[in-house]
Amino acid sequence: MARYAARRLLAMIPTMLVMLFIVVSLTRFLPGNIIDLMLTGSSAQVTPAMRAQVSERLGLNKSLPQQYGEYVLGVSHGDLGNSLWDGRSVSTMVIDRASVTGEVAAVAILVSVLISIPLGVISAVKQDSPLDYGLRSMSIAGISLPNFVVAQAIVVLPALWWQTAIPFQYKSFLEDPVINMTIVLPAAGVLGLRLSASIARMMRTTMLDIMQQDYIRTAKSKGLTSFTVIVRHGLKNALIPVVTLLGLQLSALIGGSVVTESLFALPGIGRLLLDAITARDYPIIQGVVVSVGFFVMITNLAVDLSYGFLDPRIRYS
């Protein structure tokens, strides 16, 4: 197990190197002069000295291998460079903002699991009943509704119908739990709704499959209550695909936070990215992409390793 984990961790290094290469070369390979792009919109007169300074900070005055090498070296020390305009450390900024995105993502996962697992199980147990069809239609609709349409509706509808609006002043949970939750819950709800739709579909399919297994029939014929059979024997075995799905959807969840954070004025990673783009602060954009990518890779590994705990029959080699 430990050896397997270590091997998987080592295998992440080449992938990480490729990702850093993509991120570094984005500033180089794509058409258009990145420095001109960055300096358009700045009010000051663009002097050759400014260009030289920007190009030095971006590492564009060096050769690509040298720029790449230095970036890799920095990242391996946890240094993602500094903001172009105010010189603050990108790593610190990302870590500061991560708590907000993390909170929303955690609440979203909680919401989705609480909604979808009971719905998926009910749908499977009452297969092909009107209830099943209703729940399935709802979950398909949930997958199809674009995040930003739902988010927009949550912003607009209360104001149209009840003349109230969500207070768009983020406070951390420790500062003011009530205000924190009034913003975090709707944002997490938007992301969680979509997630719960896919989990419910997955849950239904898996439960249908499991409920036909021999050990379920054995459990039933032992005279156990149907609740015990469904929860203890069925549900427990249906959770592994859900964990996999959660791991796979984490990337979509962070992607979705770009939309919700911009609509609900949440100061998270997504907002950091959008603000950095407005300011053309390239080191921050690179830093966000790298840290999100790294986080997704680590969680995927954690998901793979968790199978062993969830199902002792699974062994790693």
Binding site: M19, T27, V258, L274, V289
Partner: peptide, 26 residues
């Protein structure tokens, strides 16, 4: 090499990668 590129691209959430590309492309 191709598989590591696929891994790297899949690790970055689609919309974030898209925005990063669009910023450079216009």
């Amino acid at each position: 090499i191709v598989q590591r590129v696929v891994d790297a691209v899949q690790a970055i959430p689609g919309i974030i990668l898209l925005i990063a590309i669009m910023v450079v492309l216009g």
